[in-house]
Each structure stands twice: as C-alpha cells, then as structure tokens.
Design a protein around this nucleic acid. Structure first.
Lengths: 344, 344
DNA sequence: TTGAAAGCGGTACCAC
DNA sequence: GTGGTACCGCTTTCAA
C-alpha cells in the first residue's frame, strides 16, 4: 500500500497539464520550460508527491532492490556485513532483500530463485557450505544478472569478489601459536570444497612449513555443516582430544566453530591455554570478556559489505556490459589474548 | 530485472487464447473449462512461467512486502527477532525490508517514510530509544497501514503488540539477587520513557518492595542512548562505583548495556560476583563462556518475531478493518550462572 | 514546448 | 466458457 496518494495525473489535473509534461518536468527534461518545471516541482513538493516505485519498476524493468544470500543473519560476521551492505544500498535508494541458506544447498537454490522471481537488480551472495555446484548462479550470470560474491566465493563464475585475506589471517594465527611455543596445532574447519576453507588451510599449512613442521593429517578436522550443529564440532573435538599425541593448540576456521569449541572445552574443564590453546576466526564483540579472553582473527565485515555493494551497484549502473572484474581482498586483524598465552 | 522472460501474453499467443483467459486459468477461475485450465497450467509449468510480482503489485495495490524497523541488526536480540520474522514472512510469500534507527528518532522517522514510500503492506516496529512522539506512525495507522509493535511499544497507538514479560523478567532477576544475599542492587537502564525501561524498572522495584527494601535513587542510572555509546555506560557505572555506599550487585536492562558493563568491570578488575554481582537482559549465546559466566534474563526473540509477523499478516489479510487488538506477552527465561553466585 | 497515446504485465469487468 | 478492454502509475516515443 502506498500512502502517498498523489500521482502524476493528480498533478496534471491540478495544473491543467498533461501527465507526460508533468513526468518530464519532474525528471528535469530539457524539453520542458523553466516556468512549467518550477510550477510542477513546487506543486509536487507542497503536496508531498512521491513517485510510485512499483509503477517505475514495472515501466523501467528494474526494481531498485538487491538480493542478499547469507548462511544466517544471526551471526556476528554476517550481521556486520549486512550492516555494511545496507548502509550503501540505502543511501543509493536501493532496498535489500535478505535470505538465509542455513548452510543448505537446496535452500540456496530456492532463495536465489525466489530473489530473481522478485525481480532483483543484482545479487550479493556468500555460498552455503554445502554448495559445490553453481549452475543456478551461472545461468543467471549468463543472462546478465549482476552478481558479486563475498566471503565464500566461487571460482567458476567470473565476476567481482570481495573476501578477507583468509590466507594471511590463518597464517598469522598459526604463526602466532608457533611463536608462542605451541607445536601440535590442530585445525577445525568447514568442508574442504569451500573457498574460505581452502584459503585458511593454505595459510595454516604455510606457517607450519615455514617453521619446518610437517602437517599431521590427524590434526585436520572438517565439520560438514560448517559448525552449524554443535554435535559435529563436538565430534571433531573429541577425536582430537583422544589422539595418542594430543594437540596443544587449536586453530578454528569460523565464527561458529570457534565459539562452540570454546564452550565445549570449558564444559570438559580443559585448561585453556595451558592444556590446549585456542585461536579462531570470529567477529564477536565479546572476545575480550570470554573465559579466557579469546585470541581471534577478525574480519572487516562491515567494510566487506560496503565494498561488495559498491561493486554491485557499479555493475548495475554500468551502461555497457562489464567484463573486467576485480577481486578485492581485505586485511584481517589478529587479536592476541589469553587463550593463546601460556601461563605455566 | 526479472529473468523469467515468459509472460501471460506469451502463453496466450502460444496457445491461441486471450490474455484474460490465461490469467483466469492461472488463477483457477470457475469460468474456465478444465480442459483449457489444464492446457494453460501445463504450458506455464513447462515453460517455467512466473507471474511478474511487480505487475501484480501495481495492479492490486499491494507489494507483498513488509517493513521492519529495529535499532540495529548487529545485535543478538534483534537478529533473532528478524530471523523469526523472516521465517513466517517468507513462507507466506512476503519480503521483508529491514531498516535500522541506530537509536535515533530522526532516522526512525526517515526509515518509516522511506518504507511507506516503498509501498509496504505492513510495518513491524520496535521504537528507537529516542522516540517519545509517535505522530509519524499515528498518521499512517489512521490511514490504515497495518502496524504491529514489538519489544519497545507505544501506548499511544492501538494495535497488536508483542513484548517479552519485562516486568517478570526484571522481577525474577532482582529477586534472585536478593535471595542470593545481595542488598544494594543498582539498575542501569535505557531512558525512562521507553516501554521496556518502565516495565523492567517496575519489576525491579516490586521485587525490592516485596523484600521490604527501599529504593535508593542513587542506584538507578539511565543511559540516554540505550547503551549505544560505551561512554554513557561507563559514566553510569563510574557514578555507581564511586558512591559512598557502593552497590553490591547490578541489574542491567538491555543487551548492549549488559555486555558493556561486564567488559568495563573486567577492565577495572572488579571481582564479579564477590565485589559486584551482575545480571542482565541479554540474548547472547555466549553467556556460558563469558568470564564469569553471566546470569541472564533471556527473551524469546525468535518467537517474538514469529508472533509479531503472524499478527501483522492477520491484519493485512483481514477483509474488514481490524479494531480488536491483542497484547501478547511472552515469558522470559532466567539463567543463573556464576556472575551472581558469591564464592566468598 | 507541450500533449496524446502506447505499453510495462497483470487483473477484472462486461460482452458475447 | 472465452475474449475485449480498461486500468494500476509512470515513461517514452512521436506528433502537434
């Protein structure tokens, strides 16, 4: 329902003009005399005229809304990204329509379909952990739908992408553990096929290599659903803690896995960091007041949202098809706190 | 952009029917023969026909989208509410458009205007802490825009409302402190004019009265911006900690204030709970692993979102004007953890 | 410089 | 049972 009752024809009637003249005047067309423009604009202003965006959309074939696909909104990292997205979209007159995959490929496909069916002008997406096949996006991309990937990206589609420097973030975290005297560093992460998992694993591996430490395959644990279920994280952790040669530190690769591991370790009364140190990717504002304060790799989520949206809008607004794409990598931040600082 | 190119007239042309016949067939009108319906529906299915929602909106005067106004999405409580809202809205074919006030009255008015200008079918709103005047909503409500308040509601407008049982939540928290031996209980909260502040304060007061303890006005501190700025929470806390008669416990009234107070107390090396106990409203999933584990009043945020949306959709779908309104109050949950359990 | 008219994709009223 | 047509509000030729 649009509660701004006044339309172009109302103005036309009131001023004894035609609808087309009013439309042109409102759009500052060169065809219209200054006098008429002034008349129309004043009347419009005084009567609080607002063009009906739905009529405009129908006519122009664009909706001024962009679709967002994330795993879940109830997650510090994503809510911060969305915050960034909204700040740009909103100031440019775009709505956002947010959908959640809950890490399910099926839901991702459904959401993407729903969004295009709702006539979005562009799509911002972070793939679900389950997603291995991006045909549903490839098709739309080929048809000309502007798409920008952020966070979990796909190599298969050539378009703008924004990610955190996952490699360096993981490298820094692992390096910090090594320099703090930890030697048996485990890694709990999402399925191996997601981009962030690969990049973070590579950083972890490189740091170990640079210290001349061989990778212990028993120390690498994958959570099929990216830690969505506590059970899978618990299972991974149990496997690590029952190894003959137990790890003395754990590097976790995602927000949810990190906090779940912390919570389970506490429940098991495992001393952090003396028995096992913990560092992980997380964007929680509470890292400081956790027990123990949690060493963390922080991603510039808000900035990621801003950058992704700017890129998307640049494609949407471009007159000619965009064929040159950028791959923006934003720096992560390493916060060292007590969870990785041995006291004994 | 709608990438489902096929339209009603495409179908009409292909089947040698008129657009109106096709439209009626698709809408399962009794006027159309089974044979034609079958023909049309099959063709539509096979060609993946999707009605253009924008054209439908324009014609029917409704957009199938609902507006949401919250203070900020980057907050556990609100992201959980939105999660609930989306789960219902989405399954009923509605989009949601989320806007944030960042606790500013001016932004709230802007957002509400923007939303109506985007032709929403209904509005779900939690007022900003600054909001004292609801004329911007009153006007729309009078014009017939369905509105449902949740969390921070307004008495001035008669419509459906969903809140947590703020009184009981506050009463329970205070009562628990009293029963744990705390006597000088401070209260840090949002501005006195918001509904949640009043209700939570009333619960706090009643618990003290029931124990025969007089209210100490020095123990009540208000944060003008609901704790949005750390500085104001810090100031409130400092005032409490420098009183001659210091409080031995603090009851905080909102998510942000609660976590900020915890963080400042830790920074000041105040022993919780032996020097000062802390309990507060918060929906963080991390309460268990904070230092110390935080006693908390938890609100059923997801359920609140669901209920509010169901109520809103019932107004939207109602054939006749709705004049009987419900005031739903959902129970809070009290979690007792170490931050309120003296060890010495 | 202004206006008439067509059309975006549906829906609904009224003929036939 | 089916089709013609007007219309939702705006934009955009094309003609005047």
């Amino acid at each position: 329902m649009n509660f701004n009752a006044i339309t172009i024809s109302d103005i036309a009637r009131a001023l004894n003009l035609s609808a087309s003249t009013v439309s042109k005047a409102l759009n500052d067309s060169y065809e219209i005399s200054e006098k008429t423009k002034k008349l129309v604009l004043e009347y419009a202003r005084d009567n609080n005229y607002r063009p009906n965006p739905i009529a405009q959309s129908l006519k122009k074939g664009r909706s001024k809304s962009i679709g967002i696909v994330v795993s879940t909104i109830d997650n510090q990292f994503f809510s911060q990204v969305i915050n960034g997205i909204e700040s740009v979209a909103y100031s440019e007159g775009y709505n956002v329509i947010i959908t959640q995959t809950h890490e399910s490929f099926e839901l991702e496909v459904m959401n993407v379909n729903h969004l295009t069916y709702r006539s979005i002008d562009g799509l911002l997406i972070s793939l679900s952990t389950e997603t291995q096949n991006v045909e549903h996006l490839q098709k739309l991309h080929n048809q000309g739908l502007p798409i920008v990937f952020f966070d979990r990206v796909s190599d298969a589609i050539d378009t703008h992408k924004v990610t955190a420097d996952n490699f360096k973030g993981a490298y820094d975290a692992t390096w910090h553990l090594l320099n703090s005297g930890y030697k048996n560093i485990a890694h709990i992460t999402s399925p191996a096929h997601t981009s962030i998992t690969r990049e973070r694993f590579a950083g972890y591996k490189k740091a170990l290599q640079d210290k001349g430490i061989a990778i212990n395959e028993n120390f690498i644990k994958y959570c099929k659903h990216g830690g969505k279920d506590v059970a899978e994280t618990e299972a991974a952790l149990n496997e690590l803690l029952t190894l003959k040669e137990k790890p003395d530190a754990i590097f976790t690769a995602s927000d949810r896995i990190t906090t779940t591991v912390l919570s389970i370790l506490r429940k098991l009364k495992v001393n952090i960091p003396n028995e096992v140190a913990l560092i992980g990717f997380t964007n929680t504002a509470l890292a400081d007041v956790l027990n123990p304060p949690l060493s963390a790799v922080y991603q510039p989520a808000f900035e990621m949202g801003i950058k992704a949206t700017q890129m998307l809008l640049s494609i949407i607004k471009s007159k000619r098809p965009v064929t040159e794409f950028e791959n923006v990598v934003l720096p992560t931040e390493l916060f060292i706190r007590e969870s990785t600082l041995r006291t004994i």
